[in-house]
Design a protein around this nucleic acid. Structure first.
Lengths: 339, 339
DNA sequence: CTGAAAGCGCTTACAG
DNA sequence: CTGAAAGCGCTTACAG
């Protein structure tokens, strides 16, 4: 077990006070340039790194941010979305020597409890809030605790907390317009849980654009995002009437499940049915046929959120940030509807 | 912003010294039962929770464990395995008020660096080591640092670190014997990266059982676990000769990709080709046909690892632990080979 | 059974 | 520009 160097060790070797060493190490005024360089060199030699607890205690900052995932075990891990988001967040934090605390809980009550605990224990300096709902009590709790947070989702419904969001309404319009241009008149949608804000925004946009384009039918079926429910919804829709000629899925795994159901029911994709998946993933590329998708750079999305939360902690005033529009990538699962 | 209560606040309200309050709060001798109860009640009333930094600093323990995922961004998040494992670990830790630090890095060098940093900063008390390799320098680094760790993987090649493992060799034998019993003589395998220990163990077992059963052919193709490479390997295998009548995939997403390739090539599953996936996930249930799988309780696997790392930190002597054998769940993707 | 004190390793005003 | 000291909120021997 190697020994860890402390600031006192450096001070002794440098024949300085601990305070001077601290100033040198933190790039603050109070020491000469020559002294600073000597101290930095020594610290590097001795492999010194600040004791995170000591620094946290004296500076009143944890050097860590928290993210809680409230999802039932059944859907957890099936969507590539989260790991990509985590990965994007994490990369940005690591570059700034900030740790990420992760907690997995069954529901919002447990999530709120986790926030209260982290706050009381001073475990984290800030929070990434995901899966925003329309009436989201978590927002109120974070505001009440005064725990800095960045919401990943929106726009709207996130109180005074800054958000990083992506324009789901416009993206939805883009997809439906594309399908209508191909000639589709009966379009269905297999959505996520109705209580999620972005589900609601997409549903609203879906209805609006369907009306604007005077589609013959535009049904939305809510699910829990799981492939099972995605499959079930697809079976129901394909059993019509009105049987849709195109279905938009709110995530990749349900689209894959839907493709499989079409196959099982002898419905050819894309000849008899067009399929569009929201959020691309390798899964969408490897199924047969490869799926037409709405693609976003999710790692970059996470990175943006991380940057903004760090800025918030630095005292910068941080407003909402709109991420780039998703791109529509047409692959093999969309075509003109049967005549 | 609510105010956080400290031990000094409690001491004042209880007219006691801070030391006495600490003893009472931590269930240590040195205070009367009556005093202890009074203190506990007060602490609960005031919403007191120990400041994690202060406790970490004085007790020399971080109250946190770390897990680093070293995977290229391309495969990250596609396998449900990790989120399930994380979820199992996390649940166990949360119950013991221990935090989980997560870091995502591109390779083992960066992973080792993360360990050194965490160690130097006293960020974590222990590590979960995943994706064990045959010559794994990470094991040596952790031993050298004296950082307690539990290896998730094995058996063997984990030095003096205790491991939680699952018997891949026996599971492989079980699968091949099942396929042979159905009548298959040409069995192939789409494996993970060769440098991973469990890949090697499975490959070895695959070869041995193939020889024992005198199979006509038993080819293994290495991949990076990604659906793309799974698809590519399947195309190659089905282009034969010898064209296999059954393929075993080392993970679920490659099996799904393989099923899709079979479809694309006009190879009927299971009539012309049987498919078995290692590790079940909802994905395997929803493709058409649903896949025969080797199923494990991955959340429980993670929970076991967490329990053992906590025990290790408590000073218990912790040995290796063999998890339950995977179960073979026969669904629609396996059948007798064509005559 | 209880109190006063030192210490964990930093940061940060405050004198010199 | 530098040093001595207090303080962050706990834990833990050590006296009484």
């Amino acid at each position: 077990m190697t020994k860890r160097a402390t600031i006192a060790d450096i001070a002794k070797r440098a024949a300085l006070s601990k305070g001077a060493v601290s100033y040198a190490l933190n790039g603050r005024p109070g020491v000469s340039e020559a002294t600073r360089e000597r101290v930095l060199k020594l610290a590097a030699e001795m492999g010194w790194r600040p004791n995170s607890a000591a620094r946290a205690l004296s500076a009143s900052r944890a050097g860590a941010l928290g993210l809680v995932m409230a999802r039932p075990a059944s859907t957890l891990g099936v969507e590539p979305f989260f790991m990509k988001l985590l990965s994007g967040i994490e990369n940005t934090l690591a570059a700034r020597s900030t740790a990420l605390l992760l907690q997995v809980v069954p529901d919002h009550d447990a999530e709120v409890e986790a926030y209260r605990r982290w706050w009381a224990e001073r475990r984290v300096d800030g929070i990434f809030l995901i899966d925003l709902r329309i009436e989201d009590k978590r927002v109120l709790v974070l505001e009440e605790l005064g725990l800095p947070a960045v919401v990943i989702g929106g726009p709207g419904h996130h109180g005074r907390l800054p958000a990083v969001w992506s324009d789901d309404a416009s993206a939805m319009a883009m997809v439906v317009e594309y399908l209508a241009a191909l000639g589709h008149r009966r379009v269905a949608r297999v959505a996520g849980p109705a209580r999620m804000l972005h589900t609601e925004l997409r549903t609203q946009a879906f209805g609006e654009v369907a009306e604007r384009l005077a589609l013959a039918s535009a049904v939305t079926v809510a699910t829990d995002y799981s492939p099972e429910q995605g499959a079930q919804a697809t079976r129901r829709l394909l059993s019509g009437p009105p049987r849709p000629t195109a279905i938009i899925y709110d995530n990749d795994v349900m689209a894959v499940a839907g493709t499989s159901v079409a196959h099982e029911m002898g419905v050819d994709v894309p000849r008899d049915l067009s399929i569009v998946a929201w959020d691309d993933s390798v899964l969408c590329e490897i199924v047969h046929p490869p799926l037409t998708v709405l693609s976003r750079d999710i790692m970059a999305y996470g990175a943006r959120a991380a940057e903004r939360l760090l800025a918030l902690l630095d005292g910068d005033s941080v407003g909402d940030f709109e991420d780039a529009m998703p791109r529509l990538i047409a692959r093999g699962s969309t075509a003109r509807p049967p005549a």
